[in-house]
Design a protein around this nucleic acid. Structure first.
Length: 266
DNA sequence: CTGCGGTCCTGAAGGC
DNA sequence: TGCCTTCAGGACCGCA
């Protein structure tokens, strides 16, 4: 599933390819996933591509911009269409961008630039790779709630961009049990967790995202990322912990599959 | 405040 | 072989 590293990878690639292109037509096969009037942006030129949390932002040279959330199975790719193609953008140079989404949870919206502020949009929380992601900020966030630390990590209104894969991996690296109440974390554990979050996200970007077996994420050119080769616990229930060799367990926290080593993560 | 369950959606997997 | 049920999951919403 596309999380911060996957959306960041996609945004960086799209930026190098799409900037300067003029949108000549938009084909919509799933209206609910593109609820606005495409005429608003026909003829506009793409000026920049950026990311906020798991949201990709495409800036245009008129009064509008596009934002898209890939959710579970969304893809933005250059080749197509395919069986799950829901929206197609065609450009003046005859190239195209295909929005594929098997489960149809993702969306693309047109917003007025005057109504969009990338920092305050949708009450999203701190970007974990920004300088606002400080030890004090985390102490503040975790100290306020007794919810499970994993649920807090994935709460987009608090910390923005972490999904199930990277939450599992970060908690393993920090040796913290995902079920722990957030406000039970010691300061040294918060420091370790902060470091772990930054490491798993930066590695995720370095390896251009996680394309797990049942994962829909691929890069715009259709190729896979390679971070799945470096995962330590995600989807590894029944396998040996790379740290202590005991068996990795799967449980459900906040309704989501959670992978951890009961021996290492206390 | 918190946890839980339902909603959206589709294909894979399991049961018989 | 084939039908039917169950499940996964990001974000959001209503309920207790």
């Amino acid at each position: 599933m596309p999380e911060l590293p996957e959306v960041e990878t996609t945004a960086r690639i799209l930026k190098t390819v799409l900037v300067g292109k003029t949108i000549t037509s938009i084909e919509i096969f799933s209206k609910k996933q593109f609820p606005n009037d495409p005429k608003l942006i026909i003829g506009s030129k793409i000026t920049d591509v950026d990311r906020r949390a798991k949201i990709l932002v495409i800036y245009l040279d008129n009064n509008y911009l596009l934002i898209t959330h890939l959710k579970l199975t969304g893809q933005l790719v250059f080749a197509g269409p395919g069986r799950s193609t829901r929206i197609v953008f065609r450009f003046a140079d005859r190239s195209a961008l295909f929005f594929n989404d098997l489960r149809k949870f993702g969306w693309i919206k047109i917003l007025k630039k005057s109504q969009f502020n990338i920092d305050t949009f949708d009450n999203l929380g701190i970007e974990p790779l920004s300088n606002k992601f400080t030890q004090n900020a985390l102490i503040n966030i975790f100290g306020k709630t007794r919810r499970a630390v994993k649920v807090v990590l994935m709460d987009q209104k608090l910390i923005a961009g972490i999904g199930n894969i990277y939450a599992n991996e970060a908690l393993f690296l920090a040796k913290i049990n995902p079920q722990r109440p957030a406000n039970s974390l010691l300061e040294k554990e918060i420091i370790a967790l902060k470091k772990a979050i930054i490491k798993v996200l930066k590695d995720g970007i370095k390896y251009q995202g996680t394309s797990a077996d049942d994962d829909a994420y691929i890069k715009p050119d259709g190729s896979k990322g390679s971070n799945q080769n470096y995962l330590l616990v995600y989807q590894k229930a029944g396998q040996k912990c790379p740290n202590c060799q005991k068996i990795i367990k799967r449980t459900t926290i906040g309704g989501r599959g959670t992978f951890f080593c009961p021996s290492c993560q206390k």
